[in-house]
Design a protein around this nucleic acid. Structure first.
Length: 565
RNA sequence: GUGCCUUUAGCUCAGCUGGAUAGAGCGACAGCCUCCUAAGCUGUAGGUCGGAAGUUCGAAUCUUCUAAGGCACGCCA
């Protein structure tokens, strides 16, 4: 049975109010006061005041006198509000025993049972370094996958590698003109990137280079042996480097089917569009008109017959629908591509696919440098690998300074350093642009990943020392407001997970984890947990429950939780 | 020019299905380790919620207008 204290309060009100308001309206009206003095839930009476034509405080007083429920300790009227205080003993007992039984499954649900969600994420471009921008897609997608799994969904994480497109024509052109095989073998990404940059700077004074690049891409699409050989070499070298980063981040994929994978699947799409009379010619190119969706036309084939991004994404959408039967298909891709996804859905709707609207673009703001977008072509970018290694070495220095006797220092430094970077990315709402700041990213104090990890590690340490015997929290001292704050947060966990699922927003969980960690740290500073009295085991039960939920929150964000640090 | 996003404390951001004195962290200043990991805790200072009008008993939150910044607008992805 699902516990939900808010809806139980709503039920109680519903009975008191008879038919005046329906249950769902009441649930919507109930709020959580920001101030603890106002209790755990509050019901504003202003709407009733209108229909009853009575003063709100009068109504509040009347309702508060009628409230009677074993879960409610006290109800008082303040202004036009009915403020309700939950029965701390009962609720504490219920919350703790639920967590004690459920352990890491606490907060799980089955709403996604037998449903598949595909997640298009990470998707770095071959022959380019893994930049900070790709980090966002990777960690947001990874967290969403874990959140969906927690809710019973089956997830398919797809790394839609940018391994096809005109850029490879450009790269081949550049390599053939200025490339050096030995150099590329030695430092593939660096060398390929500098060739790519050189191409663009030379092309500024020599536009015919662009045509050459396009021509090489056409050759690639037509199966030219030399082009293909170079392409697969570039791809292989790049993947090796990406895998190093994925290993560090502990992110894995169910599929690496990138753009090239769809090469032989695009004719079907183009034919389908043709059959349905959706394709029209415009300046020698083939487009689907989307005027009735008030969108610019979607380009399907270039004037030279080569395909485009949209063509491949259409093929990919069809393939994924057939192959995975998804209920939702998420695309964790930057905000700047929102038009593309609108067009994609528009075309699918025109093709009469009723599942067109189950494609969900999960956009995110971009990583800015000096207030501007970072550009690969101009070589203005920050390498994730460097950021991660700096973060890890900072964590390492911290360990030497604060806990030099720690065992497995290297493992923990990695967990903390990487955790800091991931958390920094996930703690804010994804649509916000982020101005790149190494200083912010490598901060380990305050609202950071290490803060939560540290809180958990301290709690774990207490459990080790206290010899917790597994008993529940029935003996706990209810007079401490610090304790109640923890319980109050613990009981919200599953609601938080639901919200972050609905909004595709991992930051909800990150913020929750901060709140819970803070509540625990306050408790820790006020109450001596290991004090040997009759409540010791009960306090340990509370501490244990905190570690369960903190660890689970971190896990959902893709961050590890060391037992010691 | 059109569309989308953003604008809340010095900085980074919560709060946004309308509700009670607008909250954190960082930075600044002042405290707390004879006691469970000080990567912690406590306190002080700091706000015309970009601006204007409207809807409402009530607006940071909804609507319209407007300003600033960012991004995107067919042969890149």
């Amino acid at each position: 049975m699902k516990m939900n204290y808010l809806s139980q309060f709503a039920n109680t009100l519903h009975q008191i109010l008879h038919q005046e308001l329906d249950l769902s309206t009441i649930e919507l009206l109930i709020e959580k006061p920001k101030n603890a003095d106002f209790g755990d839930y509050a019901f504003p009476c202003f709407q009733l005041a209108k229909s009853r034509r009575q003063a709100p405080p009068l109504i509040a007083k009347k309702i508060s006198e009628e409230i009677s429920s074993p879960l409610i300790e006290k109800a008082e009227a303040v202004g036009g509000y009915v403020n309700v205080f939950l029965t701390k003993k009962t609720v504490t007992q219920k919350v703790l025993s639920t967590i004690l039984t459920g352990k890491q499954h606490y907060g799980s649900s089955t709403i996604g049972q037998n449903k598949v969600v595909t997640i298009d994420m990470s998707s770095p471009n071959i022959a380019k370094p893994f930049s900070m921008g790709h980090l966002r897609s990777t960690v947001i997608g990874n967290a969403l996958a874990k959140i969906f799994q927690k809710c019973g969904y089956e997830t398919v994480k797809i790394n839609h590698l940018g391994d096809w497109g005109t850029q490879f024509g450009k790269l081949i052109t550049a390599y053939k003109k200025w490339g050096d095989e030995k150099k590329v073998k030695k430092e593939p990404i660096k060398e390929l990137l500098s060739l790519y940059i050189q191409f663009h700077s030379e092309a500024e004074g020599n536009p015919s280079l662009e045509d050459e690049g396009r021509a090489w891409f056409k050759k690639l699409e037509d199966g030219d042996a030399e082009a293909l050989a170079l392409w697969s070499w570039f791809r292989e070298e790049s993947l090796k480097e990406f895998n190093k980063i994925y290993q560090l981040l502990q992110v894995d994929f169910n599929s690496f089917a990138g753009e090239a994978f769809y090469n032989d699947k695009m004719d079907v799409v183009v034919n389908l569009l043709e059959e349905q009379g959706l394709l029209m010619e415009s300046n020698q190119a083939q487009v689907v008109d989307l005027q009735d969706e008030s969108l610019p036309p979607c380009l399907i084939k270039k004037s030279d017959g080569a395909t485009l991004y949209a063509t491949r994404d259409l093929a990919a959408a069809l393939y994924r629908k057939n192959n995975y039967q998804f209920e939702q298909a998420l695309y964790v891709v930057g905000n700047e591509q929102s038009l593309h996804f609108k067009q994609l859905k528009g075309v699918l709707r025109k093709m009469n696919f009723d599942w067109a609207d189950s494609l969900v673009h999960v956009p995110f703001g971009m990583m800015l440098k000096d207030g501007k977008k970072m550009s690969t072509r101009k070589g203005k970018l920050i390498l994730l690998e460097e950021v991660l290694s700096e973060s890890i070495s900072l964590a390492s220095r911290n360990i030497e300074e604060k806990n030099p006797s720690l065992t497995q220092k290297e493992v923990v430094a990695k967990q903390v350093g990487v955790g800091a970077v991931i958390f920094h990315d996930l703690k804010n709402f994804r649509m916000n642009d982020i101005e790149f700041s190494l200083e912010d990213m490598l901060r380990f104090e305050g609202e950071t990943g290490p803060y939560i990890q540290y809180t958990n590690a301290r709690a774990c340490s207490i459990l080790r020392k206290g010899n917790w015997n597994g008993s529940d929290g029935t003996q706990i001292n209810f007079e401490s407001p610090a304790h109640w704050e923890i319980i109050s947060l613990l009981k919200e966990f599953s609601d938080i997970i639901q919200t972050s699922l609905k909004k595709y927003d991992p930051s909800q969980i990150a913020k929750y984890a901060i709140d819970l960690a803070r509540a625990f740290n306050q408790y820790y500073s006020v109450v001596r947990i290991l004090e040997d009295n009759h409540e010791l085991q009960a306090r340990l039960a509370l501490v244990y429950c905190v570690t369960v939920v903190l660890q689970e929150s971190l896990r959902l964000l893709g961050i590890e939780a060391p037992q010691e640090m």
